[in-house]
Amino acid sequence: MKTGGRVTNWVANGLSRDVVAGVVVPGRWQGVDLAIWRSATGVLRAWKDRCPHRGMRLSHGFVRGEGLSCIYHGWTYGTDGRCRSIPAHPDLVPPAAIRAEALDCAEADGVIWVAGAGEAGPLPAVTGLVPLRSLALHALPGQIAAALPGLRLFPGGLRGVVVLGGIQTSLCLLLQELARGQTMIHALCGPQDDPVAVSRGLEDLRRSIEQGVAA
């Protein structure tokens, strides 16, 4: 996202606690669909959402131990991306060239970040805040920013002190563009802020932004 002249390739793709060990979830980075998964021991990976075999979405697959298995024919990929096993040919050692396409993926302050492989700079800092929740809006990032003049742009999203849900809160909204004009907001708030009040405030905010977009 390009903000205030600075550019970062990192895009927030969720909150760490929503991607528990042993799950795979869909993600998105600059128009590319992703499969984000966490192994049984906690290793997090972000891959293109495309099985090297026949292109099935890997986000529809499942995690078993330290591997991600495709739902279609069960090809299984290790955390290094390499295909480990092909159920239809159990005695075959899969060629090294068969591998999932990885993006860079990092976690800090309870946020999952994704960037294009090898092209990422430092992670946007959201220190001092606590992860709240993620929610999608039918609006573009620019429309969200325009609705919140009290927040300032920073690499990765919007940040500032606003009154939300009747209380003053330190709010950070990390913005992730989804398909079809939707944006995912990954919200963080101050450690002392009432999470229920901020969550309900975000619901109100979503209603008013979507009404503005529809009008």
Partner: peptide
């Protein structure tokens, strides 16, 4: 169902 992490869990 992509945008609903709580529902997913």
């Amino acid at each position: 169902l992509e945008p609903y992490p709580g529902i997913r869990l």
